[in-house]
């Protein structure tokens, strides 16, 4: 999924940076508010960031100028919303490019847009949509995280297709081609990621329910119902 250093032409690098920067600025502003209000959120922010780092470092080869791996961003999006997640993701992506030479600096903007913005926004939207319905909270977490992962790849395919449109059929056909190649590894991987993160969430519900209630991620009655099931 991370596009490699040097893979995108400089014009597209700038375009994606310009899209990413305002979102990051908004995220930084929100982060400041959260940190001022509740310093206890800091360890959770740290561990979600570390989690994203570890999960998205498990790479599998894929044919499209990047590679397939879980993203782990859905959990952070549910806990902190998409904009703070984008800041966390930006930090993680910077670490990955400088620790593991995974991703890159010029393409960092493009990678932030796909993994740090679009994925979490979709995940968060699904979570908000299902939050107050009677849908089981684990199912909500599963859908939010799996789709956050899927849409990260859809965005990456779009980024690649825009930079390298096919001669016949242009952007649309190269988008379909890139998507097709990604889908082989990514659809099963997204489902596995959803299952794994739903189970992780189950651990949090079992061991640290108080913080979920305090951060208003789910209501007390929902958490209690889930604990009853567990």
């Amino acid at each position: 999924m991370h596009i490699m250093e040097g893979f995108l032409p400089w014009q597209w690098c700038i375009v994606w940076w310009l899209i990413a920067l305002p979102c990051l600025a908004f995220g930084v502003w929100q982060l400041k508010k959260v940190m001022e209000k509740d310093r206890e959120a800091l360890p959770l922010l740290g561990v979600t960031g570390g989690f994203i780092f570890i999960l998205s470092s498990l790479k599998l080869p894929s044919v499209t100028g990047s590679c397939s791996h879980p993203t782990g961003t859905g959990l952070s999006a549910i806990c902190f919303g998409p904009w703070i997640t984008s800041v966390v993701c930006a930090i993680v992506l910077l670490f990955q490019s400088l620790f593991l030479a995974h991703g890159g600096l010029s393409v960092l903007g493009a990678n932030i847009v796909s993994m740090g913005i679009v994925g979490p926004v979709i995940g968060y939207a699904i979570y908000r949509l299902l939050k107050d319905t009677s849908v089981n909270i684990y199912l909500t977490v599963f859908l939010a995280t799996a789709l956050a992962d899927m849409f990260t790849y859809v965005t990456t395919s779009l980024e690649l297709a825009l930079a390298y449109p096919a001669e016949v059929g242009g952007v649309a056909s190269s988008f379909i081609l890139f998507m097709g190649i990604f889908a082989v590894t990514q659809v099963p991987l997204a489902i596995v990621e959803g299952i794994v993160l739903a189970l992780v969430f189950k651990y949090i519900v079992a061991l640290k329910p108080d913080i979920l209630i305090r951060m208003k991620i789910f209501s007390e009655s929902q958490i209690n119902a889930a604990r009853g099931e567990a």
């Binding site: 400041k32 360890p43 780092f53």
Partner: peptide, 23 residues
């Protein structure tokens, strides 16, 4: 870069090593 962002980056940096140890 704002101090609290660096603060967060450092916490994430530390957590990566804690997590890897655990894992």
């Amino acid at each position: 870069v704002p101090d609290f962002v660096i603060d967060l980056a450092m916490i994430i940096y530390r957590t990566i090593f804690i997590l890897m140890d655990q894992v």
